[in-house]
């Protein structure tokens, strides 16, 4: 009988060795991550089970009553609805813009650097400043948008004070696209073989065909990642809504993240705020899992 050696070949043994040095370098970041991300998250979940007292934490245990109260609350139902509508509007109106911009950018040879710079520049503007600028643009009496409408003979629009269009107005600034997302997609597109692009052009594929058959499949992976990031951002949107509308008018833009803030810092109901946070977490986690399942199947 032939002897079988149980010794692991050297090349495999090397691979199994624990990378101590790398782990040491990672320790500070992992620790910070746990302390500043996971601990608050778990603490928020604990808070949601109490009538939380900030001076004598955790306060009386109330079990799931914060959640039960929330699901019965008309304010929460409105906020839940508004959150989904705004996220959906953002998806339809803005998610594809940077993809399109990147695909157009990749075909521009002359002035490419300038365009990339111009797309990236707005990312350097503090988001709150951009929101304030848009708030001024939307002013029904003195804002630029209504001035333009008036100039071309159209009636003034109550951008932020009409409950019917306030959600749309919140999402509209995103239609300009740009920012870091364009560069991420652009970088991914650079991985697409130029030979394939050029040979398809020679074979008669126009810009539309190249976009559908070559560029988009090349971006599939990065679009998946960006989609998750996008959804999380849409569900957690706070700054722009807080500054532009404060959740009004008539609760038409009151979203869950705003409700977290109001419950905690206007009504001092920290347990309730923890419960809403957990619900947002659960929603984003479920959508993310579905997205990953779908991606894996494909």
């Amino acid at each position: 009988m032939e002897k079988v050696s149980l010794a692991v070949p050297l090349k495999y043994r090397k691979k199994k060795r624990f990378p101590i040095l790398a782990a040491l370098f990672l320790v500070p970041s992992v620790l910070s991550f746990v302390v500043f991300k996971y601990v608050p998250m778990l603490y928020a979940i604990v808070m949601s089970l109490f009538d939380f007292s900030i001076m004598n934490p955790p306060g009386p245990f109330v079990g799931l009553s914060n959640f039960i109260h929330l699901f019965k609350s008309s304010l929460f139902q409105t906020a839940l609805y508004n959150t989904f509508v705004i996220a959906l509007l953002s998806l339809v109106m803005t998610f594809w813009i940077p993809i399109l911009q990147a695909m157009l950018l990749i075909d521009i040879r002359r002035g490419n650097t300038l365009f990339r710079f111009l797309y990236l520049l707005p990312a350097a503007v503090p988001s709150i400043a951009a929101v304030l600028i848009w708030k001024w643009l939307y002013n029904p009496d003195y804002g630029l948008l209504n001035a333009i409408l008036e100039r071309i003979g159209l009636p003034a629009v109550g951008w932020l004070n009409d409950p019917a269009i306030a959600k749309f107005s919140l999402v509209l600034p995103g239609v300009l696209g740009g920012g870091l997302a364009v560069l991420i997609y652009y970088s991914a597109l650079q991985g697409v073989s130029r030979e394939i692009v050029e040979s398809s052009t020679i074979d008669g594929a126009g810009p539309w065909r190249r976009m559908i058959s070559i560029y988009l499949p090349g971006l599939k992976f990065i679009i998946g990642i960006q989609f998750i990031q996008f959804l999380a951002t849409a569900f957690l949107a706070f700054d722009n809504i807080y500054v532009m509308t404060g959740g009004g008018p008539a609760n038409s833009t009151n979203v869950m993240s705003l409700m977290v803030y109001n419950s905690a810092f206007k009504q001092n109901q920290f347990g309730m705020a923890g419960a809403i946070s957990f619900i947002i977490f659960a929603i984003v986690a479920i959508i993310t899992l579905i997205q990953i399942k779908v991606s894996n199947k494909e």
């Binding site: 608050p40 928020a44 808070m47 934490p57 999380a232 993240s257 977490f281 993310t288």
Partner: peptide, 17 residues
């Protein structure tokens, strides 16, 4: 990534004291 995003809001409204 999903976790990280949601934790930002939780951290904002949560108490670590």
């Amino acid at each position: 990534m999903g976790l990280i995003a949601i934790m930002s809001v939780m951290a904002a409204c949560g108490s670590t004291g």
